[in-house]
Design a protein around this nucleic acid. Structure first.
Length: 482
DNA sequence: CCTTATGACCGC
DNA sequence: AAACGCGGTCATAAGG
């Protein structure tokens, strides 16, 4: 169900994905299957009409079906200790909102407009005529038919030739127009999605932007954020970071940010019990450097930036269920080389290999991937006769316990932090959650103690075989709070 | 006119 | 057979 919220109305304390939805999501973490409409059809075998009282009545009936299942599955503690108490925390965060400096955005908009115009003019010059650069269809024609750039290998099958970033990046060195298009796309994305859109979402009563956090929006148990999505504010490029600088605290206050370090790889160490990975985290080593040293058989001191980059891609890839093809594409190396990296990784981290095999076997047997807390996501395609679908299911089976457990731990930390803020009568407030990061605002006299408290609560959220590590920072805006 | 699909790109 | 997990938003293009 998608309901556009009125951007001018403050989010109310009542959260629509209410009790039946939370129960359904615990048992079956499928975002599309947890709407009142889907629940009514599945558990009551009847369609839902628009009448509010009928919807409520139906959800009460669904509750009667699901509650015993939650108890039988041993999930009542997850419900009572995580999902239910999180709901009011999220409601408070939405109601509080975050302040956005629209003056800064307006100034950036003018600069961006000029840069975009200049880039477009150069693209038209290269093309010999103006056209709509935003239309992949028109752009593909211009680049690959009229200008005769070499089509990517995967072209064919009737569809339009892809003008995706990886394709254009491969052409950029030889054909400057490709780089121009990439730059044009980056800047128009920033302007359209953030610089132009955000000021319109500022609530005039509060002067702040109020997102909606969806508690049942991601199949792994992560939160999602919409209208606006404040979980994808740019950070990776300099132009993008200017937008992050427009997120500011209450005047005279500070922004406090805290983020987990390598939480998914730490969970991998804990779940697999791999001795080398565990050792690296117990010694507080740089995990990518350690992996490079293991994979390339050199001392950590001899690891070059290039080797570390490769090891970092392998570490990320493991969490995503990587293939040699994907790693090769990511690093710009050939598949044989990528296969070698992966083989060496599993030679050194043999416990991770065992964990992956054991996890796939268990998910195949039970049909569900589970988090440490017990949240279950159905993975039906483990037995599919379609090899692509089956491979996809197996990658999901590996990733879900890691990503989902990280989400559970962050939720628990948020509940505890919110509880302490209120118990200790602090003025500081939680504002945003970005999966492994929290953003808060604090008056000057509370800033230092809040920063330490948040870091401590995040690190102490549970005791695993390896330490949980979080870092916190303070700043006058989101970009500079590090 | 509104809705939906697609391709692209932003984040973790 | 596709090729690395999870999301949301924007612009275009096509359908009802």
């Amino acid at each position: 169900m998608r309901r556009r919220r009125n951007a001018r109305r403050l989010n109310s304390g009542f959260r629509w994905p209410a009790f039946a939805t939370l129960y359904a999501f615990l048992l079956n973490a499928e975002p599309s299957g947890c709407s009142p409409e889907a629940l009514s059809e599945r558990y009551l075998d009847r369609k839902l009409n628009a009448a509010a009282e009928q919807r409520a009545e139906a959800m009460i009936a669904v509750l009667g079906v699901l509650k015993p299942q939650v108890y039988e599955s041993g999930l009542e503690r997850v419900y009572e200790e995580i999902d239910l108490p999180l709901a009011p925390v999220l409601a408070r965060m939405e109601t509080t909102g975050i302040r956005v400096d629209t003056q800064t955005l307006a100034a950036q908009g003018l600069v961006l407009s000029a840069q975009i115009e200049a880039l477009a003019a150069k693209v038209y010059e290269a093309a010999g005529k103006p056209f709509n650069i935003n239309s992949p269809q028109q752009l593909g024609k211009v680049l690959f038919e009229e200008l005769g750039l070499p089509s990517p290998v995967k072209a064919g099958k009737g569809k339009a030739v892809s003008t995706a970033a990886d394709v254009l990046e491969a052409l950029a060195a030889a054909y400057p127009v490709a780089q121009l298009v990439l730059d044009y796309r980056q800047l128009t994305k920033l302007k359209g999605t953030y610089v132009d859109a955000l000021p319109g979402l500022v609530n005039p009563k509060t002067g702040r932007v109020h997102t909606t956090f969806n508690q049942t929006g991601a199949a792994t148990g992560r939160l999602s954020s919409s209208n606006p999505n404040l979980q994808n504010i740019p950070i990776r490029t300099e132009a993008g970071r200017l937008i992050r600088a427009a997120f500011v605290p209450e005047p005279g206050w500070n922004l406090v940010v805290a983020d987990y370090s390598q939480i998914e790889l730490r969970l991998l160490a804990d779940m697999s019990g791999d001795p080398v990975l565990t050792d690296a985290f117990l010694r507080h080593e740089d995990i990518h450097t350690r992996t490079a040293a293991e994979v390339f058989h050199v001392s950590p001191l001899m690891v070059t930036p290039e080797m570390r980059r490769g090891a970092k891609a392998v570490n990320f890839g493991i969490v995503y269920g990587q293939t040699p093809f994907g790693l090769a594409q990511q690093l710009g190396i050939d598949r044989k080389e990528a296969e070698l990296y992966i083989r060496r990784y599993f030679e050194r981290y043999a416990g991770v290999r065992v964990f992956i095999d054991r996890t796939i076997e268990e998910v195949r047997r039970t049909g569900f991937a589970s988090t440490l807390a017990g949240r279950r996501r159905p993975i039906p395609d483990m037995h599919s006769r379609n090899p692509a679908a089956r491979s996809f299911a197996e990658r999901t089976a590996i990733n879900t316990p890691l990503q989902g457990t990280a989400a559970d731990l962050m939720k628990l930390a948020m509940i505890r932090i919110d509880k302490r803020l209120r118990a200790e009568r602090m003025q500081s407030r939680l504002l945003l959650q970005v999966h492994d990061e929290l953003v808060l605002e604090a008056p000057p006299e509370e800033t230092a103690v809040l920063s330490e408290m948040v870091k401590a609560e995040m690190e102490g959220v549970c005791v695993l075989k390896v330490p949980m590590v979080a870092s916190s920072g303070v700043g006058a805006n989101w970009r500079d709070a590090k």
